[in-house]
Design a protein around this nucleic acid. Structure first.
Length: 454
RNA sequence: GGCCCUAUCGUCUAACGGUUAGGACAUUGCCUUCUCAAGGCAGUAAUCGCGGUUCGAUUCCGCGUAGGGUCACCA
């Protein structure tokens, strides 16, 4: 708010460590930064915090950047790498030492050198957190086991630690809003102290609640943290993912739950971020994704589905006709292949194997009538005769020629037998649709085969 | 354990002192020209506990309980 009043351009940052993959815990922080910046015409700085070279993972930065790109989350500055900014930290560190605000201390964990500490006094530090409200923390809580309140900001003049580098960068990169996870709440007073020593302005802080796993522990590599990449690979839409992630710990107040990217940006506000942790289950993601699929143009849906049909079926002329059947059975593109792999549509491509008894419909569909295989045989033969006469072969004509007969003889009985004869499955699309798709010749062939079985 | 934060259906959440505590996902049942899918309708399900303040508390306060975060020469 203050920044807005000063008419200062909003600048946020996203500072991941290149130590692993995005999961829903850490990506959510960036999503909120992204939405906040876009909503307010601000800018985003991308900055890798890679000063702990031992923890860095080769290529993690590129993978993180790639995911961001796939999600359509762009940034305006960077990516910067802290490992390439050591001279800057050295200069600032040297300055505050010279000014007497920090000092070299003799002690050292390994006993082989010095360490740099920031001078500190016991006092209360307060800031108005953008999501949590006013927070007061006493610096005396920084005391180490020896009672030393001066905390370490660098291993040496050439080797600054996280608290120092973040603060210097946030200052030099003109960050106005530091929006980060709740795990940084207790380090905020340290940052303010360093900022004061530096003579730098203090940005606005906002700390979002943690996302926890089903065991109520912080989401992490070892705790249910599914990589966002896997969701992308499973065929979730980027905008749907953004929608689902946003709803984890934020909502605009009404009953709307499906939002386009634009709607998300327009309605986003820090005030409506939740103050308690949210459990990540991924439960709503399927549903949200389906809703997003429905918003897509018909041609796009058809194209995507076709592209996800396993190759060996793609070449078959039937594949395109199956699309309308597929669309209502999937939540995400990856489900298309799953459907085929599970053999759900196998009968469209080759005649099914049948078990005679299954031609009889289940008890509860018979409406009290007794059914025998000999009757089924007769039904199948008569149905074949009806179909024989159909000239224009499609779902409607097939249905109309059979409907009265099925109604008279018992729809459950006749249609079940017909459908099973065509599909070999207890659960499948309706027999008229199947018949229309596989063609008159194939339909009659399967019916005759089934009746000969009896 | 110290310090900080939090507490509404199974889950995500709405209700800025007065509601039959709302929605969504999931779940259950029914309907929808046999099954499945899709769609429609309906149902089950929550204010952590105890004290205050108040005519009236989900809402404000205190205590308790529970959960989260953090206490590095990691970030």
């Amino acid at each position: 708010k203050i920044a807005l009043m000063q008419n200062k351009k909003i600048v946020v940052r996203f500072p991941p460590s290149p130590t692993g993959e995005w999961h829903f815990g850490n990506i959510r922080t960036f999503v909120f930064n992204y939405l906040f910046a876009k909503k307010n015409g601000g800018e985003i700085v991308m900055r890798f915090e890679d000063t702990d070279t031992a923890r860095n993972k080769e290529g993690a930065d590129l993978l993180q950047l790639d995911i961001l790109k796939k999600l359509g989350m762009d940034f305006d500055h960077g990516p910067y790498y802290q490992s390439q900014r050591k001279e800057i930290y050295k200069k600032e560190l040297g300055r505050i030492i010279a000014e007497g605000k920090a000092y070299e201390a003799e002690e050292n964990q390994s006993g082989t050198g010095k360490v740099i500490r920031l001078k500190n006094t016991e006092r209360k530090i307060m800031w108005k957190d953008l999501v949590k409200g006013e927070i007061v923390i006493d610096t005396s809580s920084f005391k180490d086991e020896k009672g030393n309140i001066d905390f370490i900001i660098a291993r040496s003049i050439d080797d600054p630690l996280y608290h120092f580098t973040v603060v210097v960068d946030d200052w030099l990169m003109h960050i106005t809003h530091v929006l980060r996870g709740e795990d940084h709440v207790t380090s905020t007073p340290r940052h303010i102290l360093i900022l004061e020593a530096l003579g730098a302005p203090i940005p606005l802080y906002g700390h979002m609640p943690t996302i926890i796993g089903e065991n109520k522990k912080k989401l992490g590599k070892r705790n249910g943290a599914v990589p966002v990449r896997e969701y992308l690979e499973a065929g979730f839409l980027p905008d749907a993912l953004l929608n689902g992630i946003s709803l984890l710990g934020w909502n605009p107040g009404g009953t709307q739950e499906v939002f386009t990217r634009e709607e998300l940006i327009n309605t986003f506000s820090l005030e409506r971020i939740q103050t308690h942790p949210a459990i990540f289950t991924g439960q709503k993601f399927d549903h949200i994704n389906k809703e997003h699929i429905k918003m897509l143009p018909k041609e796009v849906i058809e194209k995507e589905i076709f592209n996800h049909i396993p190759e060996k079926y793609q070449t078959h002329s039937l594949s395109k006709s199956l699309i309308s059947l597929i669309v209502e059975r999937i939540y995400k593109w990856g489900d298309v292949a799953t459907l085929f792999e599970a053999g759900e549509f196998e009968f469209f491509f080759s005649a099914p194997t049948l078990e005679i008894e299954k031609l009889l419909c289940p008890e509860h569909l018979r409406k009290g009538a007794t059914v025998e295989l000999s009757q089924i045989k007769k039904h199948l033969e008569i149905v074949s005769q009806f179909l024989e006469s159909v000239e224009e072969w499609n779902t409607e004509t097939i249905k109309s020629v059979l409907w009265d007969y099925a109604t008279k003889e018992g729809r459950g009985i006749v249609l079940w037998a017909l459908r099973y004869a065509l599909s070999g499955k207890e659960k499948s699309p309706d027999p008229f649709t199947i018949g229309a798709l596989i063609g008159k010749t194939e339909t009659l062939k399967r019916l005759i085969y089934a009746s000969h079985l009896i």
